[in-house]
């Protein structure tokens, strides 16, 4: 599915949260949405998911607005994983994942075979099959995040928009989730993901969209987005570039402002704040 945002902007409480942004997501791949806190990433995600009507501009899905394509149809074709994964009732893990099949089902009741298959696949992919009978309210933060991701995967949509899916996870599960999202992208799905870890964003994403202060500053291949200048301007950090296993990686290293920019790349210590 092709998602087109044309000049979308959002205001709230007399403040502009999102300056007019235009972007098109029309090919399979893993798209990273990055930027410092308060950059407008989550707002843009909600606008793209059709959950927040923009104050100006419009979002079109295969050329149709939300109202034209229908919220129920969009519910089958676009899955959204919210940042605050609140669960209001202590449902069993399996039942939480099954909620992802709601758009495909006319009435409540026992799941059909195709639903069962999608639910099982989503639980396998996120390695939560063993937790299936646990009340989701008794899980750890990381386990719960994976359950909610499985819920979004169970929709089996063309497009997955995930708002900070790895923020609460340990390194093992961060890599696991990104491998999984990368797999989805390789299998022809479009995945847009909000990330804070620049090293992982650089490594995994096919395309990065850099936001800052409600503005979109760059939208390009990771190498072209995470330049020294962009990192300095938006994140106020300096990042080292290292070659590992024949590929370039970036490692955010020091805050700028605490050291002069020209001095930043000289800081070789592992704990820069301890330097004399």
């Amino acid at each position: 599915m092709k998602i087109e945002a044309l000049d979308v902007s959002v205001r709230a409480g007399g403040r502009t949260i999102l300056e007019p942004v235009s972007l098109t997501i029309d090919r399979p791949g893993l798209v990273g949405l990055i930027g410092p806190n308060g950059a407008g990433k989550s707002t843009l995600m909600r606008v793209l998911a059709g959950l927040h009507p923009p104050d100006t501009g419009a979002v079109r899905y295969d050329g149709l607005t939300v109202d034209r394509i229908g919220r129920d149809v969009l519910g089958r074709r676009l899955a959204y994983l919210a940042q605050s994964g609140r669960l209001h009732w202590p449902l069993k893990v399996e039942r939480v994942v099954a909620l992802g099949r709601l758009p495909h089902r006319e009435r409540p009741g026992p799941a059909a075979d195709c639903d069962r298959a999608a639910i099982e696949a989503a639980m396998r992919a996120t390695h939560i099959s063993a937790l299936r009978n646990r009340p989701a309210s008794t899980l750890s933060g990381g386990e719960r995040m994976r359950v909610l991701l499985a819920r979004a995967l169970a929709v089996d949509a063309d497009v997955l928009l995930a708002d900070e899916p790895i923020a609460a996870l340990d390194p093992y599960h961060q890599l696991e989730v990104l491998d999984l999202l990368g797999d989805l992208a390789a299998r022809g799905k479009t995945v847009v993901v909000v990330l804070h870890d620049l090293s992982l964003a650089y490594r995994y994403c096919d395309r990065l969209i850099l936001m800052s202060g409600g503005r979109m500053l760059a939208d390009d291949a990771p190498g072209a987005v995470l330049t020294d200048a962009n990192l300095e301007q938006t994140y106020r950090v300096f990042a080292h570039r290292v070659r590992l296993a024949g590929e370039e990686h970036i490692v955010p290293w020091v805050r700028l402002g605490t050291v002069a920019p020209d001095e930043a790349d000289q800081t070789g210590g592992t704990r820069p704040w301890k330097r004399t």
Binding site: L51, R71, A79, A82, L87, H88, L91, V96, L99, R151
Partner: peptide
């Protein structure tokens, strides 16, 4: 059960 935003994303 998963909040209003998720409910809307599921088509409700």
């Amino acid at each position: 059960s998963l909040g209003e935003e998720t409910a809307r994303s599921l088509g409700f």
